[in-house]
Design a protein around this nucleic acid. Structure first.
Lengths: 337, 337
DNA sequence: CTGTTAGCGCTTTCAG
DNA sequence: CTGAAAGCGCTAACAG
């Protein structure tokens, strides 16, 4: 292995350019002005030596223009899309973005670790996505650095949050089924302890069905990735004419189970998903689902942070609305009963 | 907005605990030993004040146990799975991991920016995934910090790399089709400038077909996300009995197009994907594909880095092998010709 | 076992 | 416009 090079500092650049290190700092950071001639010499020297600023030393004195994001399970398309949007918008605003991902399951403990990593790095601002943190855990970090929560309403003073209208999405899907004529609808219900947003959706589905004069039954599932058993149960009951799922992944799980049971969709049973971020929202599957405005949420989160950082804007709340995606997994209820 | 608190430092903790700041440093970092009594007082004070180490100040003197990863398009399941694996293994080895994602298209420019961010943060080591960087761009960073490249063979002295056996995967899929009796096979070929790994796969597919006595035709596609036109062309030609795709996403695109054209798979045409990371590898679609050992690659990358960091191990090369996943999109060629 | 001291690389007054 | 010098928060000798 080639010996690791001692990293080149501002002092090395200064020597190379024949100026003081303050001159180099000014020339590179472009704060106090410098003569064009010095600037040029410095830039040449920096390039020649392969100088890269030491953000740590820099951050000891000033802002670094680095934002941090805590993301949950990157295995889910939702977070991938969010990460990409955050990154692009940060880029646009001339900030760097670093992300820390919790394990597949973002437990409070791992979320706290992730936040600490970011705080310890003294990032200028933090985007926090769907962590299940208590106010007590959040207060100390909000006190130190601007924080915007995405996808989950945080009740912490001083934090902004951006969320999708989960309840509205659930209600729209329910309305779609009701309009098709369904009256007995099974909802695969998720508990708030697993995912608040999935809980909001599914609760809203059931309520919307009932509010429109239909019957909804709540079939609790441990997670959207674990629905097969309940679907089998629903099939056995022969009561529902439609199954509403908390996510697209859950919907595909349900479709698989129905397929296994020899049922045809939507002839025998209608199925809805929710998210439309994943490749599962392919026309091939033709899932009826609801597109959450994830890229928009990511952009809004960065904008909020930057505006608070630079413009002194106040923390605020934004709820973004998505749109129904009608596919081929929903249709009129079967008459054969 | 609540006023941002001045961040609490080691000195504040020292005052609170009534000891010197060195004592605090030692107690918290656990280097030189401290009396249990002092340790306890310091820990209590740190907790009370909500102290979080300043990695920037710390990093100015020592290693931070933070690793960095440069990832491409997080929108692709491959990178999500990789990110999760990297994170988990880093956690296991007691390192933090921060990731910087390039835009949807990881251009050399954005990869260089990402690398610079990591270098500027003085991470202890870097995992670089599938960047299209030249040796000249890589040399300066490899000279500064241990780097392990994942998914792409870097020809830079001093870097490790871990890759999947792309060529082997392509060859296995080709062998599978040949075994089924196919002799005229269309390969959706990807250019190396878009993705080296996709290029390796597809080239290997064509070669393996020919090596086994079949005929392979190369149909170039701009990317694995843009295959519809070529597939339509292939359908029109009525030559091939099977289509080999560079990725699962491409395969689903192909299936959609075939579906649109009224063809049935695998009766009329067989289709293969490659990756099996995405939710697209669902039993519902039943894609015949090849599972790349992505989690294993992630783990190996972190292990390699940590071992070089701590054990002085030398950079090395590892090629990991995945496995064929036989689904329902391949079958014997149609006889009707 | 503990405190004192000297920087790590950078930005920022403050003089010149 | 430029250089000298101080200091950000921390760790690592070095004395006590």
């Amino acid at each position: 292995m080639s010996p690791r090079a001692r990293s080149v500092t501002i002092v090395d650049v200064a020597a190379e350019a024949g100026v003081s290190k303050s001159a180099v700092s000014r020339a590179l950071a472009g704060q106090g002005e410098v003569s064009p001639e010095v600037r040029e010499r410095v830039e040449a020297a920096a390039l020649k030596l392969g100088y890269v600023v030491n953000s740590m030393a820099q951050g000891l004195r000033t802002r670094t223009r680095i934002l941090g994001a805590v993301l949950r399970d990157m295995t889910r398309p939702y977070y991938g899309v969010l990460a990409t949007a955050l990154e692009q918008q940060a880029e646009e605003r001339d900030y760097r973005l670093i992300t820390v991902v919790g394990g597949a399951e973002l437990t409070p403990a791992s979320a706290v670790r992730a936040l600490r990593t970011l705080v310890s790095l003294r990032v200028d601002g933090i985007v926090l996505s769907s962590a299940q943190l208590s106010v007590e855990e959040l207060v100390p970090v909000v006190a130190r650095v601007p924080l915007t929560s995405v996808g989950r309403r945080e009740s912490v003073e001083g934090a902004s949050f951006i969320s999708a209208d989960d309840a509205g999405a659930g209600a729209d899907l329910a309305a779609h089924l009701m309009a098709l004529g369904h009256r007995r609808i099974a909802v695969l219900g998720v508990d708030a302890s697993y995912s608040l947003s999935q809980n909001l959706r599914t609760v809203a589905m059931a309520e919307a069905v009932r509010g429109a004069g239909g019957e909804a039954r709540w079939y609790p599932v441990p997670s959207d990735r674990d629905v097969r058993a309940q679907v089998a149960h629903i099939v056995g009951e022969r009561w529902a004419t439609a199954i509403m799922c908390p996510t697209d992944e859950a919907a595909v799980g349900a479709l698989e189970e129905l397929h296994r049971a020899g049922l045809e969709v939507p002839r025998d049973l209608s199925v809805t998903g929710l998210d439309a971020q994943s490749p599962l929202a392919t026309p091939l599957l033709g899932l009826t689902t609801f597109r959450q405005p994830v890229p928009e949420m990511g952009r809004a989160a960065i904008d909020d942070l930057v505006e608070r950082l630079e413009g002194g804007a106040l923390p605020r709340e934004q709820v973004l609305r998505g749109e129904l995606v009608v596919g081929r997994t929903t249709g009129p209820p079967s008459l054969a009963e």
